[in-house]
Design a protein around this nucleic acid. Sequence first.
DNA 1: TGTACATCAGTGAACGCGCGTTCACTGATGTAC
DNA 2: TGTACATCAGTGAACGCGCGTTCACTGATGTAC
Lengths: 217, 217
Amino acid sequence: MSWTRDPNPSSPRRGYHHGNLREALIQAAQELIGAKGPAGFTIAEAARLAGVSPAAPYRHFRDAESLLAEVATRGFEAFRTRLAAALDSAPADPPRAAETVGRAYLAFAREEPAFYAAMFEARIARDPYPDLQAAGDRAFGVLRALADRLSAAARIQPRPPALMIALHIWSTSHGIASLFGRPDPSRRPLPMSAEDLLEASMLIYLQGLGVPPSGSA
Amino acid sequence: MSWTRDPNPSSPRRGYHHGNLREALIQAAQELIGAKGPAGFTIAEAARLAGVSPAAPYRHFRDAESLLAEVATRGFEAFRTRLAAALDSAPADPPRAAETVGRAYLAFAREEPAFYAAMFEARIARDPYPDLQAAGDRAFGVLRALADRLSAAARIQPRPPALMIALHIWSTSHGIASLFGRPDPSRRPLPMSAEDLLEASMLIYLQGLGVPPSGSA
DNA sequence: TGTACATCAGTGAACGCGCGTTCACTGATGTAC
DNA sequence: TGTACATCAGTGAACGCGCGTTCACTGATGTAC
């Protein structure tokens, strides 16, 4: 957040002329990304949507990528919140927990396509945006926590590292979300829902790990 | 291919002024996509790379999306060829066959990032490009054939439909390729290779299907 | 074999467009006193 | 409490740029006769 000196960017009212242009621009960028993809938004159009002149955004963001990185960062925060809520509310039973988190993953991708695209398709370099990197790491941490539970319940030997299990879950969820889980004219129809596809995949995978099926306790 | 009357677009020499501008433009588009992503190429720049005036491409392609669709179509054809070769050369043993095809999948994504991006990230609508759709279907057919073998070897009951197994393989492979398998400054480092990650995932999944492990025959 | 003609791939100039970015400015806000 | 001042978010005009797209054209090629 080197582009502003405001120590608390989330303060709702800062007395700007606009009210809160920074927030409005992030909102506008999100709308544009949702409608046209990460490449389909421009600073100029975001300014227009926010009702300010094309020069105004430069008071808040160095360039378009900075704005995009901010959207992606917030996306990862919202993602983490959503996954964590799912994991916390999920049954202790490992397969059920995996299914609950998987559904939350797909729901996020479906309901927040702009966030998801900014997070995974915008090709933002990691290094210049440590906040983005950190937010991504925290979101992955939820999958990692889920993987710890699954790993603890696994009976096969040698037990695969929890990190690897987390990466498997992430990859499969991301693959299904990318290929089938979002509104997009380029996606193909599926003979089943993305949720069913993911659930089946997870159940087979957990079976392979030797995690006892639901209701077998 | 409604944009040209040539009944055989693959003929190598047609006596054009340029020689074969159509091919040169496809080549140029591929280079640009590889360097900057599907949104990073323009008709004008492709023309420049091919050494012709900016108006010349319009003799061959209606617009940028048509050119992109042609790249994606060829990408799917190359993908199908590569996957099919892997499947044909793979050991009959189902887990080994899956591993071989999985490696071919990742190798393609890594070595042909321009094709892969055009195929999966360009957001080209399916309907206007039946050739693209058909090429995609044929490529998926190879994964489907692999899934048939795996399904036949599965011991769990009820046996999951081969179509679903194919979709699982595709999703996981695509997820790993997208997240970790391509040269991109936005990817994170992994504590293992994408190939190892995919192989482990497949082995656990096949274990879950009740496919006998390699060497157990 | 030679000539006249038709075809059409590629030219190059031109256009309007929206973008990114800059600049001196203005005017609302907060604050020092 | 009131005034003078400093700050800085946002203005609006301007710029150069590259893009998509069009147009009448030109000139190489193939072919009818």
